[in-house]
Design a protein around this nucleic acid. Structure first.
Length: 421
RNA sequence: GGAGGCUUCGCCUAGUCCGGUCUAUGGCGCCGCACUGCUAAUGCGGUUGGGGUUCGCGCCCCUCCCGGGUUCAAAUCCCGGAGCCUCCGCCA
């Protein structure tokens, strides 16, 4: 939910944001109209109610003869109040609807356009050359190592499911543990989150809008499976006034993540690039909105720190407005080089949601004057199952073995190489 | 699956039987002032949140889990719902 004051005072800015996203700017005008209508109906209902209260007081103190006449008057007024109230709540509903239809206002310097209009901010590291052999893809390496079993994954659960076995399971645990270790060193509170959340939490984070088809829903229990621990971590402080006087509150969530991958038929059907269930360590930060842009840069830096530890070549992109989620004002992705695909694939994603989620979830903090204000929320990836793809492919050797990045070795019991079975 | 209880202004709490000075009590916390040569103790005062209106002081409305209803008038009465807790049963 965006700030209505901003909509009223700088309508053009919000319209421009919609245009940058490639969405209809007229939703903004609808919102302005709805806000005006609500304001007017509130005013009318308020003054009628004030009148009613005064009259009600007179009824309670009046003598018997006077009382009867006053009651007649009061009855008429009650009808008028009821009508005004009905209009008020109708206007409220309309405003709410118009409000929810407008995604977050993008930062002013976000590149406009769609999926392909990102801006590359930097490229880091050297792509591997593979002298004298043709690199295997992660599916083949996973088989050689006995690390990934997609056949049995689909036997048991269907397409886009997999087993991580032996070295694969250990490698993932090592990676995620390294992510948690880094987060804790940095001052994050590690959290193992619920994977099922209530509708208001899923809705509050902005995931039930245009991309609701991505979400698994358990209808019998009216719960949703989370696609990222961002969701429970955002819900954690809903309807609270949190203390940010000591700076941002940072959590590192560990969870399995579930995604329906609706509409992605035919994309990445092999291996574990795009799957229905994976594991992730995610950073989440609550902070003063004034600090959100800086915090966003910090989250990006911590992501890059992780990528450096696993010694992967990657680039950082500034995602275009049209490719942002509805909650995000800006998003940076880190994409690792995948040798057998000859292209970069997203490994991390960090979004600044400013106060958009906090407004929906009613998460506030007290500012320097002690006034409650909406907090900003941000999130960013530290590690996911998909990272295994990049690690296996980039660090593979001619004999099918895989070199373990130095920083990761302590988390694998000191192991330096993953050997084919 | 069954039974019972609870939900009030950051937290705790009075009030609900019997509708109107509930314009919601008190404590904790927090803020300000006073006093004391310190951080303490004490006293006094302030402190729910949201919205409307106003240059501003202010004024008004809403807010006692949510939604309906009764009534001139609802924290209070009636109906429906949600959440939380406890116990029993069952299963791990």
């Amino acid at each position: 939910m965006i700030d209505l004051r901003l909509v009223r005072e700088d309508t053009d800015l919000v319209r421009a944001s919609q245009a940058a996203r490639g969405e209809d700017p007229s939703t903004v005008d609808t919102l302005v109209t709805a806000a005006d209508r609500r304001r007017e109906s509130v005013g009318r209902a308020d003054s009628l109610r004030a009148e009613q209260k005064v009259l009600g007081k007179r009824v309670s103190t009046a003598g018997p003869e006077e009382r009867l006449a006053l009651l007649v008057q009061a009855r008429d007024l009650a009808v008028a109040v009821k009508a005004a109230q009905a209009e008020e709540s109708a206007a409220d509903v309309a405003l709410q609807e118009a409000h929810l239809a407008v995604p977050n206002v993008v930062e002013h310097d976000v590149p406009a356009g769609g999926e392909d209009d990102y801006v590359v901010l930097k490229e880091v590291g050297d792509k591997p050359t593979f002298e004298g052999f043709t690199p295997r893809d992660h599916v083949e390496i996973g088989q050689l190592l006995g690390a990934i079993d997609t056949d049995r994954g689909s036997k048991v659960s269907g397409a886009r499911f997999y087993f991580l076995t032996g070295q694969g399971a250990l490698l993932q645990l090592a990676l995620l543990n390294m992510a948690v270790a880094q987060a804790v060193e940095t001052g994050f509170t590690p959290v193992i989150t619920p994977s099922l959340v209530r509708p208001e939490v899923m809705g509050g984070t902005g995931y039930l809008g245009a991309h609701a088809a991505e979400i698994y829903r358990l209808e019998i229990d009216d719960l949703y499976l989370v696609g990222t621990s961002e969701v429970p971590l955002a819900g954690m402080h809903m309807a609270e006034i949190i203390d940010l006087s000591a700076g941002p509150r940072r959590y590192a969530g560990w969870s399995s993540c579930y995604r329906r991958e609706a509409g992605s038929y035919g994309k990445d059907t092999q291996g574990i690039i795009r799957v229905h269930q994976f594991d992730k360590v995610e950073m989440f930060s609550y902070c003063d909105p004034a600090e959100a842009r800086d915090e966003h840069k910090r989250l990006l830096a911590w992501e890059e720190q992780m990528l450096a530890k696993v010694e992967l070549p990657y680039r950082v992109i500034d995602t275009a407005a049209g490719d942002l989620g509805s909650s995000a004002a800006r998003k940076y992705d880190c994409e690792a080089w995948i040798p057998t695909q000859g292209r970069y694939r997203e490994l991390t994603s960090t979004s600044n949601c400013t106060t958009f989620q906090a407004r929906r979830l009613n998460i506030r903090f007290r500012d320097a004057d002690g006034r409650p204000q909406f907090a900003a929320t941000l999130n960013g990836t530290l590690a996911t199952t998909r990272w295994l793809v990049a690690i296996l492919e980039n660090h593979q050797q001619p004999d099918g073995s895989v070199l373990v990045p130095v920083a990761l070795r302590p988390f694998l019991g000191g192991r330096e190489v993953l050997q084919p079975l």
